[in-house]
């Protein structure tokens, strides 16, 4: 049987990759993917914990998370379409109308 720590290491790696992606990459879509990575890192944790604790709660929670992630992707893509129509860019650094 694979020890729990293996799963936690994989999920931590995914979470860190996602976190670095959000902070470093400037393309809206890549940032969206990176955040999906973070959510899925949490999912791996939830399912692994759920298995090792013999409790179903974690798996139920991860199903809800998958649904939420789909909703977020839909809203994110809708907003980016609106932006692209207006500015023809998906680079978040070019969003600089608002600042003091």
């Amino acid at each position: 049987m694979i020890p729990l720590s293996y799963y936690v290491v994989v999920s931590t790696l995914m979470f860190v990759i996602g976190l670095v992606g959000v902070l470093v990459r400037r393309n809206f879509l890549i940032i969206l993917y990176s955040i999906e990575l973070m959510l899925n890192a949490a999912n791996i944790n939830l399912v692994a914990f759920s298995h090792y604790l013999s409790s179903m709660v974690g798996q139920v929670l991860s199903l809800f998370v998958i649904t939420i992630a789909a909703g977020e992707a839909a809203i994110g893509l809708a907003i980016i379409v609106v932006l692209f129509r207006k500015r023809a860019t998906t680079n978040v650094d070019e969003l600089n109308v608002l600042k003091w």
Binding site: F28, L32, I35, L39, A42, L61, I68, G76, L98
Partner: peptide, 22 residues
């Protein structure tokens, strides 16, 4: 621009909260 900034900050946050919950 406000929508995009709020969206990115918001889903980033929800990722953090979720990892904490896990």
């Amino acid at each position: 621009e406000a929508g995009i900034k709020y969206f990115l900050a918001g889903i980033f946050t929800s990722g953090l909260i979720l990892y904490g919950i896990a």
